[in-house]
Amino acid sequence: MKNIWTIAKREYDNYFNGPLAFVVMLAILLPMGIYFSLILFYTSQQAFFGGGGAPDIQPINGLFVFLMVFLAPALTMRLLSDEARMGTLELLLTSPVRDSELVIGKWLGAMLFVLTLLGITLVYPIVLNNFVDPGIDWLVVLSSYIGLILICGTMLALGVGISAIFTNQFAAFFVTLGLLFFLYFMIGLPAGLLPQSGEVFNYLSIQNPFDQMNAGTMTLGGIVYYLSLISLGLFIGTTAIEIRRWR
């Protein structure tokens, strides 16, 4: 456990050593801030003319996840691929650290960064709470943030797993991006085309459980699906490292 934490802490610090952390923050917080302001502006205008509902944080949390589809690959691409390219993997693999601890530590490091981002976005519900009478439903906010953590964890775990396979970080980036794009946007499409038998594709989309949690409905199936994908990603990563040893 200590090893996982040591590795996670270094990865977290390492994001801030280069520009990546700040680029990702800018790319995610700026659109969210603009979007949030627009929502406030729009709903307050509606309220002024005596209509419309109360604003909520659902749309901006949805935007966070939408942007993460593109940014999660950037956060995970070099986590293991670069260690292999630089030769530092040899150092880690000859340290008293289990392969699984290494992979989980890398994932946790990326997770801590995303949790930092999510922590910053908590200002939106807090601001919103002051605007809306009698305040917002914090249980929905909680459910939405659990959904955010789970779906981001899923994306990062798959990214870490793919990063362990490649020695080139850009290969890892594009493969992760392709996979997340597929799982988020495309896999649910057949459900609309095949109204009877296509329902199953809805269950495979990583977007749907989040949308439900974002709206305040936690589903056991969704939680289990995310946790399985996280395990799968970390398992792929660990296996890829083990295969590297045997080669």
């Binding site: 390492n14 280069g18 030769g87 530092t88 993997l89 040899e90 150092l91």
Partner: peptide, 9 residues
């Protein structure tokens, strides 16, 4: 190791 593996940053 032969190629000294270091984190340059």
């Amino acid at each position: 190791p032969e190629t000294v593996p270091l984190y340059h940053d």
